[in-house]
């Protein structure tokens, strides 16, 4: 009887564990809708990929605390495409965040936004770089837990 109950309990736990694992690790991908944009290239760097890369290529960069990165999304121009849709996605995201850096030179420009928790941990970093004539756009969205100093290092190592 005890064995039977143990088996039932184990099956129950095993049945639930994937659901918990998925809900814990499945990230919210904010730039993913850009993957359907014509003329843009979307890349998602998953936590598992980051864990794998920490021991290899990323360590030589030294400017990013890879241990604290949860995931990264990148949306950039592949060929000239639907700029209005691109701008809508980016503006929607940047409006939720705080601007900490801005630089514009003619048609080119850079905009950096962050989201900071009440305990002053930077949870999200959005870097928008746009080129001239609607080309060479690059958006990088980094999710993790960073100090302000670590964020500074990302841009000024």
């Amino acid at each position: 009887m005890i064995r039977l109950l143990t088996c039932v309990l184990m099956l129950f736990v095993l049945g639930l564990s994937p659901a918990f694992a998925q809900s814990e690790t499945q990230p919210e991908l904010r730039l993913r809708q850009g993957s359907s944009l014509e003329g843009f290239d979307y890349t998602y760097i998953s936590p598992w990929m980051l864990k794998s890369m920490r021991q290899k290529d990323l360590t030589e960069l030294k400017n990013i605390p890879v241990d604290k990165v949860h995931h990264i999304e990148i949306l950039k121009t592949k060929v000239n495409g639907n700029y209005e849709s691109f701008k809508h996605i980016i503006n929607q995201l940047s409006d939720e965040m705080n601007l900490i850096g801005y630089n514009r030179d003619g048609d080119k420009g850079v905009k950096i936004c962050v989201e900071i928790s009440p305990v002053e941990v930077v949870k999200r970093i959005l870097v928008i770089k746009w080129g001239s004539n609607g080309a060479e756009h690059l958006v990088t969205y980094i999710v993790g837990d960073f100090t302000q100093e670590e964020v500074n290092n990302i841009f000024h190592f």
Partner: peptide, 15 residues
């Protein structure tokens, strides 16, 4: 990813 992170590092912008 590597290229993008290099590019960010070279932005030279004050925060």
């Amino acid at each position: 990813l590597i290229n993008v992170l290099y590019e960010i590092r070279n932005l030279d912008i004050d925060l």
